[in-house]
Amino acid sequence: MVSVCSPAEALAHVQPGDTVMVGGFGLVGAPLTLIAALLEADGARDLTIVSNNLGEPGRGLGKLLPARRVRKAIGSYFTSNREVVEAHLRGEIEVELLPQGTLAESIRAGGAGIGAFYVRTGAGTLLAEGKEERIIDGERYLLQFPLKGDVALIRAHKADKLGNLAYLKTARNFNPDMATAAKTVIAEVDEIVEVGELSPEEIATPHLFVDHLVRSEGVSA
């Protein structure tokens, strides 16, 4: 059963060393209220963050880095936050770079009970290093294991009181995939409506995936 709670109550679920998935493509569709609360959470230390980007310098997830909360970042594009690149070059954080589609599919697989999958992307490149390769129908494929989170912080537009979620436009991005792939799923939403007010057709994340709802406090990046 979903609970409606404050950002601080929700983030109390985060433990040191946790893997935290965070939705968003850059700052679009990123749960900025939850990210701000994560900075204040006692347990938010030594984290592995799974997110396409690590925000921008001092914005969004970029706030976690100067606060030294991140041990490892798994994502596809960190160039937009120079601080991540610099911290990595100084050896302060570990970075695992995945092609964006492999990142998304790893999360999907993590939530869908898939043990691993083979993917063409990255074969024959530097990102294939250390990965098992297999020829299928004459083409090179890489073995990729799924990603799972202890906690997922996601952003949706509307929720109903059961926890069904509807998204807005390209703010959807990684959020529905991450909603399936973590033990505890916390959704930041603009509005919480009565059950029945969302059309069944517009619900992109059914409520069984969602544990906690937090109202967005309109935190800007």
Partner: peptide, 20 residues
């Protein structure tokens, strides 16, 4: 997607597009 020695750490969707 990468220049050795330069602080570039991102591949995004380029590899997927080339493959698919």
């Amino acid at each position: 997607w990468s220049i050795p020695g330069k602080p570039i750490l991102g591949v995004g969707g380029a590899m997927d597009l080339l493959v698919g």
